[in-house]
Each structure stands twice: as structure tokens, then as C-alpha cells.
């Protein structure tokens, strides 16, 4: 439900990083979304598609990469990706496990066109 707000924040943050550069120069934006962030990627995609052109990012493609959910076993240190129902260690069956990552909401990179001054605007 809050994908709209995350899309807004994404565009705001991208434009802030651009500084003086025109938003239309942005070709590609790499996002990393944790599978446990609570974000539905398709919904984020939809809102980015709506908001980006309105905010001047008329040439941008957003590449959304899903980051896995990782747990670590406290008994044998195995790092593993749990299935929906099984939160125990696949190596030693311990249920003494700790959440490591999977909450990411990140902008990894922005690809901007060079030689803007040579181009007709």
C-alpha cells in the first residue's frame, strides 16, 4: 500500500543526486528491494511509471533487483534463505536463527547520459 510513497521518495532522491543535471538525462536507475521489505515490486513499478515522467525523468528505465531474505544459524553460522514456513537451519536443523537481511530499499546506481551539451534539447 505504501509503494506510492516509496516511488515518490525514489524520484525525490534521484533528483537530489542529479544536482544541476536535467532529469531527462537519466537513462537507468538501479533499485534494490529486499523481499522482506513489505514492498510489492509490481506496485512500485506501476507508481514509478506514473510519477517519473511527471517529474521530468522522461527517459528513465528502473531496474528493480530483489534482494533475498537471509538468516544466519547461531549454532553453525550457516547463511540461508528460508522458505515461507521453514525458518530453521538447513545444515543442522537448529531453530536458533537470526534475521540478517532482506529489508533493503536502496538506490544502487543512476546512469546518466554524457555529452549533454552536444545534444539538442
Amino acid at each position: 500500500m505504501h509503494e506510492y510513497y516509496v516511488a515518490k521518495h525514489t524520484i525525490y532522491q534521484v533528483k537530489k543526486e542529479l544536482g544541476e543535471l536535467h532529469p531527462s538525462l537519466v537513462k537507468k536507475v538501479g533499485l534494490e528491494i529486499g523481499k522482506m521489505s513489505g514492498i510489492i515490486p509490481e506496485a512500485l513499478e506501476m507508481y514509478l511509471g506514473l510519477i517519473a515522467p511527471e517529474e521530468g525523468l522522461t527517459n528513465a528505465t528502473f531496474i528493480i533487483t530483489l534482494a533475498p531474505v537471509l538468516f544466519r544459524c547461531n549454532d553453525c553460522s550457516t547463511l540461508f534463505e528460508p522458505s515461507r514456513e521453514l525458518f530453521w537451519c538447513p545444515n543442522c536443523n537448529s531453530s536458533n536463527v537470526t534475521f540478517v537481511s532482506g529489508n533493503e530499499l536502496k538506490i544502487q546506481y543512476i546512469d546518466v547520459e554524457n555529452n549533454a551539451e552536444n545534444k539538442e534539447v
Binding site: 521518495h9 532522491q13 538501479g30 536502496k106 544502487q108 546506481y109 543512476i110 546512469d111 547520459e113
Partner: peptide, 22 residues
């Protein structure tokens, strides 16, 4: 993650920043 950099005509700004930084 696409770690292989941008094509020649593009400049990559590497961020690794939280979307919700504001």
C-alpha cells in the same frame, strides 16, 4: 545486481543509498 558498469555514453553514479534517506 548489475555490477558491470555503464556503457561508454553513460556515466554511472554509484549510490547504494537508502531510498527513504530523506
Amino acid at each position: 545486481l548489475e555490477g558491470h558498469g555503464a556503457p561508454q555514453d553513460l556515466t554511472r553514479i554509484n549510490l547504494g543509498k537508502n531510498i527513504l534517506e530523506a
